[in-house]
Computed example of a mutant assay.
Amino acid sequence: MLDLAILGLLHETPMHGYELRKQLGTKLGAIRAAISYGSLYPTLRRLQAAGLITEGAPAEPVTATEVPALTTRRGRVVYKITAEGKERFQEMLAQAGPETYEDAGFGVHFAFFARTDQDTRLRILEGRRRRIEERREGLRDALTRAAERIDAYTLELQRHGLDACEREVRWLEELIATERSGGQPGQNSRATQPAGPGESNTTPPPPGSSRHLPERTEDEEGG
Rank of each mutant, 00 (worst) to 15 (best):
R131N: 10
I132H: 05
E133V: 11
E134V: 06
E134N: 11
R135F: 11
R136E: 15
E137K: 11
E137P: 00
G138S: 08
L139I: 09
R140Y: 01
D141T: 08
D141G: 08
D141A: 15
A142Q: 14
A142G: 10
L143I: 08
L143D: 08
T144H: 08
T144L: 02
R145M: 06
R145K: 07
A146R: 07
A146C: 05
A147G: 13
E148V: 10
R149M: 03
I150R: 02
I150Y: 09
I150D: 02
D151A: 12
A152P: 06
A152C: 03
A152G: 11
Y153E: 12
Y153L: 13
Y153P: 02
L155D: 09
E156T: 10
L157Q: 15
Q158Y: 11
R159L: 08
R159S: 09
L162I: 05
D163K: 12
D163C: 03
D163A: 09
A164I: 00
C165G: 01
C165N: 04
C165L: 08
E166L: 06
E166S: 10
R167K: 13
E168R: 01
E168P: 03
E168F: 00
E168H: 05
E168S: 05
V169C: 14
V169G: 01
R170Y: 03
W171P: 00
L172G: 13
E173K: 12
E173P: 00
E173W: 05
L175R: 12
L175D: 03
L175F: 06
I176M: 10
I176Q: 07
I176G: 14
A177D: 02
A177S: 12
T178R: 04
R180C: 07
S181N: 10
S181F: 04
S181E: 11
G182D: 09
G182K: 09
G182A: 03
G182V: 02
G183M: 04
Q184W: 01
G186P: 07
G186T: 10
Q187R: 12
N188V: 05
S189T: 08
R190A: 12
A191K: 06
A191N: 10
T192I: 01
Q193R: 15
Q193H: 00
P194F: 04
A195T: 10
A195W: 02
A195M: 02
P197G: 10
P197M: 03
P197R: 09
G198C: 06
G198Y: 07
E199W: 07
E199F: 10
S200N: 00
N201C: 07
N201H: 01
N201W: 00
T202Q: 15
T202E: 14
T203R: 15
T203E: 05
P204C: 08
P204E: 04
P204H: 03
P205K: 03
P205W: 03
P206F: 05
P206G: 12
P207K: 08
P207A: 04
P207Y: 03
G208N: 04
S209V: 13
S209T: 14
S210R: 13
S210Q: 14
S210E: 13
S210P: 02
H212D: 15
H212M: 15
H212P: 06
